Amino acid sequence: MYLVVGLGNPGTQFAATRHNIGFDAVDYIAYKHNIDLSKKKYRAYVGQGMMNGQKVILMKPQTYMNNSGESIIQAVNFYKIPPENIIVIYDDTSLEIGRLRIRTKGSAGGHNGIKNLIAHLGGQVFGRVKVGVGEKPPGWDLADYVLGRFSEEELREHVGPALRTVNDAVETIINDGYLQAMNLFNQKKV
């Protein structure tokens, strides 16, 4: 069993922001695999289903980004999911819009949602699919940038294709492992 988590903030005021690309990716995966994400459990929206013959739990924590670990650890403990079967999808401002970077461990890199998850899991070993949202322009506040919305052109040219690629990357992780997914998707422009 795999736990696939998209990070974001709840509420319409945060919908479709750069910081919520993890939510958007999990919504797309749910759509592609016909998984209902309407059940409220573990302070999150969750859905169970199958991806290429493997049981998966999709999750969108509703604790706000900086407290995501509080929600995720509940599901991890209940289902006894090993760290290598946790896949967390989130925004990365160090990557161009639409680029992916897959990792199996590492620091939070300044991302407060990941920092909170590391604290709750008690370690840095878990799968990550970082989705590039572009570097903040000079003079911008980071919070204002990540809580801003993509332009129509960015959505059409980069975000839509990136969501499809995230789905493909998660399928590859589940079917063929992280190394194969990293070889196929890291730093490839979508």
Rank of each mutant, 00 (worst) to 15 (best):
Y2T: 01
L3V: 03
V5E: 07
P10M: 14
A15Q: 08
A15Y: 02
T17C: 13
N20K: 03
F23E: 02
F23K: 02
A25C: 08
D27E: 15
D27Q: 09
D27W: 07
I29V: 11
A30Q: 06
A30H: 09
N34A: 15
I35A: 11
I35Y: 04
D36E: 12
S38R: 14
K39H: 13
K39F: 06
R43P: 00
Y45T: 06
G47N: 03
Q48I: 02
Q48L: 02
N52M: 09
N52G: 13
Q54Y: 10
V56L: 06
V56G: 07
V56A: 03
L58P: 11
K60G: 05
K60N: 00
P61W: 03
P61L: 07
Q62T: 13
N66Q: 03
N66L: 01
N66M: 06
N67C: 01
S68F: 00
E70K: 13
E70N: 13
S71D: 01
Q74E: 15
V76Q: 14
F78V: 10
F78G: 04
Y79A: 04
Y79P: 10
Y79W: 15
K80F: 12
K80S: 14
K80D: 14
I81K: 09
I81F: 14
P83T: 09
P83W: 11
E84F: 09
E84N: 15
E84T: 07
L95Q: 06
E96T: 06
G98Q: 01
I102V: 06
I102A: 01
R103L: 09
R103E: 04
T104Y: 04
K105C: 05
A108I: 05
G109Y: 09
N112D: 08
G113Q: 10
G113C: 14
I114Y: 12
N116Q: 10
N116D: 13
I118M: 04
H120V: 04
L121D: 04
L121Q: 06
Q124G: 06
Q124A: 07
V125H: 11
V125G: 00
V129F: 01
V129W: 02
V133G: 03
V133L: 04
G134S: 12
K136E: 07
K136T: 03
K136A: 12
K136P: 13
P137G: 07
P137A: 13
P138T: 06
P138K: 12
G139I: 00
G139L: 07
G139S: 08
G139K: 14
D144S: 13
Y145D: 12
Y145Q: 14
Y145P: 12
V146D: 10
L147Q: 06
G148Y: 11
R149K: 15
F150E: 13
E153R: 15
E154R: 10
E154Y: 11
L155Q: 11
R156F: 06
E157P: 00
V159Y: 05
G160K: 15
G160Y: 11
P161V: 12
A162Y: 03
A162E: 00
R164Q: 15
D168G: 01
I173C: 02
I174P: 00
I174V: 13
D176R: 11
G177T: 03
L179P: 01
M182A: 05
N183G: 02
L184G: 00
N186E: 05
K188M: 07
K188C: 01
K188L: 06
K188Q: 11
V190A: 06
